[in-house]
């Protein structure tokens, strides 16, 4: 059985390393990209099974833009996206979770700092079951 491949798009190289250690420890392969642009390339080129996407890289909403582009591309639109939000961000949007989840093109929001256990749980939950 091929191991699932997770793409981490985040410009915080320390956090990428932490996520890599955590996910490799439970048997996933991890590739990473440090900008939205590189992330889109790798999503198209390497066909990851799941994407962890940081909401705020270069600009406040770069992550959202990347998510929209991933969803708009036939090659990537089926890949589950877990969005990592900075601490304190999520409360700032005045979310109406029931309503807003529908038009935000991601499968889950994970607020940093995310514990290793929760990260693994969430990745397992959203990975396609065929793997």
């Amino acid at each position: 059985m091929a191991e699932a491949k997770i793409l981490v798009i985040d410009d915080d190289i320390d956090l990428v390393e932490i996520i890599r250690l955590t996910l490799e420890n439970v048997g996933y392969a991890v590739i990473d990209a440090q900008s939205g642009e590189r992330g889109l390339e790798k999503a198209r080129g390497e066909g990851p099974d799941l994407i962890l996407l940081d909401v705020m890289m270069g600009s406040v909403d770069e992550g959202f833009q990347v998510a929209y582009q991933l969803r708009g591309d036939a090659a990537t639109k089926e890949i589950p996206i877990l969005m990592l939000t900075a601490v304190g961000d999520q409360t700032g949007f005045d979310f109406d979770p029931a309503k807003d989840q529908e038009f935000l093109p991601v499968d889950e929001f994970l607020e940093k700092p995310i514990s290793p256990r929760k990260l693994v749980d969430m990745v397992r939950k959203h990975l396609p079951t065929t793997i």
Binding site: D14, T22, P113, I114, P116
Partner: peptide
């Protein structure tokens, strides 16, 4: 200050938690 501090703090917390877990 919040903006500058939040990433280091949350990454540090994840790092220590991961070190403990692994």
């Amino acid at each position: 200050v919040t903006h500058e501090v939040k990433s280091p703090v949350s990454t540090a917390q994840s790092a220590v938690e991961t070190a403990l877990e692994l």
